[in-house]
């Protein structure tokens, strides 16, 4: 464990807590893409298949349970909670996320470290996480105005993977033979996808005005 990875995990934890807080307290999911939340639930379900077989540490197991629990409960809230579901804008949240799942699965079957069931699904979860934010970013551009909590959620979600990139650089230089191109490239692409959001988020924060992405 290094400071970059710990900062990344805490930022990731903060992002899901901000979203859960928003949905649970104001009982609204306005501006939040259910498709992105469903993709994240799939990401965690396929990445943490080893949760009961490989014990790494209490921290590792605890965080996996938190991420699994929060992502599935957010999906449940947005789909089934009688009040929250009314604020879900399904007419705007139309990104065909199945067009993301299939290519990621095919790619994971071609590019992986070992062609086994768990390894292919683990690789699939990395590719899927890299593009999971797309429905949310498309929804933002459609709905134009977004509330602060949703903006903070996306910012934290992007920042966590940026911290992980520093973690991978650190581990590359401190641990011999620590080379994993697949998460590195997927993580880099994921962070780049947030590029323009970060740009507009920073400018809205600097000029202290409402965050608006260009149409």
């Amino acid at each position: 464990m290094n400071i970059f990875r710990f900062a990344g995990d805490m930022t990731h934890l903060a992002s899901v807590l901000v979203l859960l807080l928003k949905i649970h307290t104001i009982k609204s999911c306005a501006g939040v893409s259910l498709k992105t939340q469903e993709l994240y639930a799939i990401v965690f379900a396929t990445r943490y298949l080893d949760i009961f077989t490989d014990f790494i540490s209490l921290y590792n197991t605890f965080m996996k349970l938190v991420f699994l629990g929060s992502s599935f409960s957010i999906v449940w809230y947005m789909r089934s909670h009688k009040i929250v579901r009314r604020s879900y804008d399904k007419d705007q949240d139309t990104f065909r996320h199945y067009f993301l799942i299939v290519p990621c699965l095919l790619l994971a079957m071609i590019i992986n470290e070992k062609f086994t069931f768990r390894e292919v699904l683990w690789t699939f979860s990395l590719f899927l996480e890299a593009v999971a934010i797309l429905p949310q970013l498309v929804l933002l551009q459609r709905t134009r105005n977004i509330d602060n909590l949703t903006g903070q959620y996306i910012f934290l979600l992007g920042a966590y993977r940026a911290f992980y990139i520093f973690n991978w650089i650190y581990r590359y230089f401190t641990e011999p033979h620590y080379v994993h191109w697949i998460p590195w490239i997927a993580g880099l692409l994921q962070t780049l996808l947030y590029g323009d959001f970060f740009y507009y988020y920073f400018h809205s924060w600097k000029n202290n005005k409402k965050l608006q992405l260009p149409a």
Partner: peptide, 10 residues
Amino acid sequence: FQSPPQKDEL
């Protein structure tokens, strides 16, 4: 026998 490097990251 080197055990496979575990996936210790989240």
